[in-house]
Amino acid sequence: EITKEQKALTKVIVEAYNRHQIPQDVAKKLLQDQYSVEENFLLLTEMATSQVQVIVEFTKSIPGFLSLDHEDQIALLKGSAVEAMFLRSAQVFSKKMPNGHNGILEERIRKSGISEEFITPMFNFYKSIIGLHMSLEEQALLTAITILTPDRPYVKDHQAVEKLQEPMLDVLRKVCVLQHPQEPQYFARLLGRLTELRTLTHYHAEMLTSWRMN
């Protein structure tokens, strides 16, 4: 059973998740005209910057986050922004968009000069997230849990972060049981995706290094 406090916590997280979205004008650019490889790259950089800003705004709304040590706040965001971004992007691909917009977006990513070695695991990750058919509550809570991971580099007060993350894990576990009664392993599968995310982020760091060298 989900307690009143847990319901309230979920509501705050879901509302924050819904409230903070990429600005329409940035999102629209992705679907306009033809772009060269270089323009695609610049556009994706702009999207990524915008996504990080959205993630920070969402994180500021997580109860207790702003009471953490300021440098720990930065360490958590720095350690998780890329993972949170991949989670959010996967959700974009899981939505049914009009007029084959998903295809246009995929093409744009594929033609941005990013190597195939990275593109394949990225789209595989997106597919594995889409296959989970996560509810909005699950998406929002999983994103918050990713951000509030205590063992990121340079985090000093692990305990304070754990204290914020644990209630989220508890409520997510309950939400999973309620929403997927036929799948007792669902919660474990969601957490498994976080491990997959870490691997993807590792590839991402390598990809950026090779991009810079080019």
Partner: peptide, 21 residues
């Protein structure tokens, strides 16, 4: 680290609410 492409700057500014800077 090489992978960060100004990530920390974006985060610091967004945390302070100075997105336009």
């Amino acid at each position: 680290p090489a992978s960060n492409l100004g990530l920390e700057d974006i985060i610091r500014k967004a945390l302070m609410g100075n997105l336009e800077e």
